[in-house]
Write a protein that binds this DNA or RNA. Structure first.
Lengths: 131, 131
DNA sequence: CTTGACCTTACCACCATGGGAAGGTGTAGG
DNA sequence: CCTACACCTTCCCATGGTGGTAAGGTCAAG
């Protein structure tokens, strides 16, 4: 299977596949006589694993670890769980941060006339006026 | 006031201030005879405005718009409100997305032994096993 | 005059991805 | 066989923000 086929089957663009290979996230693909990258079913499974990991928001470096664990029959599920939980913790922090911004901004917007007049508590807040 | 002073007063690193100037987010600073950037109180207010906007998660391009509106006495608060609300909507989407990931991942982690054995529903999910 | 803190520009790096150019390859139809 | 056209290759550039660092100029105090 060429890279285009692998891309559409895995849902990862050809561009990204090459990038993942370049940075060593996935091993170098086999090559045809003409130099075309060739992908096996096994390679495809790896790509799908990577894609699902990305969808769950893992960073490339984490996926690299996950891939090692995945391919290691002597892994301990503890390591995987630990990685997942620390990712979850990070996400929860991010959510809280965004939530607090949303609350602030929504509140400001609620008190903004939203008409043709220039007065606006949003700008006032950004300006830092402590009125 | 030199850039170092402006940086520590505004909470934006000198590096970032130069970057903001370079991309045109803020106007070019006045220069001393020796070529040092010089900042007035007014400039400092702008920097603080930018910093607060960043803290609320606005992208640079949006801050550019906010700055124009801020400096436009004939602005309509509608424009500001609209910008804020569309930002809020984007944030809400992002939060939902992250929340869904957290739920999934926490659930998987809950069902992972987290011991020395290799069995792990997290990896199974990433692998795509539909069992 | 020296020292040290500050400033300048200019470059490289990160993460993850998209775009595009310039050129080779593979295949199908005329 | 030739021509299209789809696909592949590598290479460079861009994004958004930021940090780092190097090579050099400036300023104030001692």
């Amino acid at each position: 299977m060429n890279i285009g086929q692998a891309a559409s089957s895995s849902g990862i663009s050809a561009k990204r596949i090459r990038y993942y290979e370049q940075i060593g996230l996935i091993g170098p693909a086999a090559r045809s006589a003409a130099g075309y990258r060739t992908y096996s079913e096994r390679d495809l499974n790896t790509l799908l694993f990577v894609r699902r990991s990305r969808q769950l928001g893992f960073a490339i470096a984490e996926i690299s670890t996950l891939l090692s664990l995945w391919q290691d029959r002597n892994r301990s599920s503890e390591d995987v769980k630990q990685l997942a939980l620390s990712h979850v913790a990070r996400l929860r922090n991010k959510i809280e941060e965004l939530q607090s911004i949303v609350t602030t901004l929504q509140d400001l917007a609620d008190h903004c006339g939203g008409d043709a007049r220039p007065d606006c508590p949003i700008l006032a807040e950004l300006q830092g006026s402590k009125s």
